[in-house]
Simulated assay, not measured.
Amino acid sequence: MPDATPEGFDALWQQVDRIPGWLTPAQARLLHTAVRAVHPGPARVLEIGAHQGRSTCVLAAARPDVAVTTVDPFVRTRRYAGPAVRGLLGANLTRLGLEHRVTVLATTSADARRGWVGAVDVLHVDGKHDYWTVTDDLRWAAHLVPGGTLLVHDAFSSVGVTLALLRHVLPGRSLAYRGRTGSMARFVVAAPSAADRARMLAELPWWARNVVVKVLLRLRLRPLARLLGHTGRDDPY
């Protein structure tokens, strides 16, 4: 089993990085740190979107008393292999010795929430990225404890995710923006100040740049994307 201490993160990442996915090392460290910061008692983590477990394993390895529930319908799409992915998730959890810390709910976020009871310390949202799905996923934030952490992947990178955050979180009264690591935005359960809202709005130019980069990549205009600072092969994360 991976070392759950902060010093053990690099060794953990060497194992997790073998799992396909779009989580960067810095974003993984943010997830790891958020779970380790939960105090006192067991850390209760809820994740929307597991895929093969790249982020799930990071969350579950953060500390020995963590209980992770990950929700994914494992639907077959053009980009995803559907139900077969659940087996890959299970295999990765077993390889890292983390299967006893994770409960997998093979259902939609909305269906899982209807029967959910209990508080959540850390919520990681990385499901389907359209506006309506993200809007529904954000309703899980009602289960976060005071001071709890919400981490949203592909924020200020995906149109659907960003619009949902602007519509439902920016004018809200319960989630305060605390910055981002790449495209992973961090919020805490607290009354947002005017400065918090201003910092969130200040991310919009970066969002616009990312949308343009994605369009250029789809059009196979990679040299133009490089002019905007994009150095990788994949979408900006």
Rank of each mutant, 00 (worst) to 15 (best):
A4V: 01
L163Q: 13
W132F: 14
G160T: 08
D111G: 08
T5Y: 04
L88F: 06
H168V: 01
G182C: 05
A202I: 06
V211R: 11
Y131L: 14
Q27V: 00
K128V: 13
A110Q: 15
V102W: 00
T77M: 08
S193Y: 07
A106T: 12
S109D: 08
D196I: 12
A225N: 04
A176D: 03
G53I: 01
L46E: 02
V16H: 01
G8H: 06
R54S: 04
L88S: 09
H153L: 10
H230N: 05
A60V: 00
P42E: 13
Y237R: 15
A28Q: 03
R186N: 07
D126L: 08
R209F: 05
A164L: 02
A110V: 14
L170G: 02
V120P: 06
T162N: 04
L30G: 05
A225M: 05
L221C: 14
R139K: 15
Y237S: 14
T5C: 02
H129T: 10
G229E: 13
W206K: 14
L98F: 03
P205Q: 07
T231F: 12
R199Y: 06
E203D: 12
V45I: 11
A11Q: 12
D111T: 14
T181G: 00
V134K: 11
A119M: 12
V104N: 03
S109P: 11
A191F: 11
A34Q: 02
V38C: 07
T94F: 03
W22D: 05
P223Y: 06
T70A: 04
Q52N: 07
V134P: 09
L224V: 09
G21H: 01
Y177F: 15
S109E: 04
G232E: 13
D196C: 13
L227W: 13
L175G: 01
R36Q: 12
G97V: 04
G82I: 02
V117Q: 15
V104H: 04
A28K: 03
A142D: 15
A190E: 10
F156P: 08
L59I: 03
T133I: 12
C57K: 00
D234A: 15
D137Q: 10
L163I: 00
G53S: 04
G127H: 06
P171N: 07
A190H: 13
T108S: 15
L216M: 05
R167K: 15
D130F: 09
G87D: 02
R18C: 07
W13P: 00
R167N: 12
G90I: 00
T108D: 10
Y131A: 12
R44S: 08
D136F: 09
P83K: 00
G82Y: 08
V117F: 12
T108Y: 09
R76F: 01
H230I: 10
F187Y: 14
L170V: 03
R180W: 00
R101S: 06
R114S: 15
A11M: 02
V75E: 13
A119G: 13
V145A: 12
L138C: 13
V120G: 09
Q27L: 05
S157D: 15
S183Q: 02
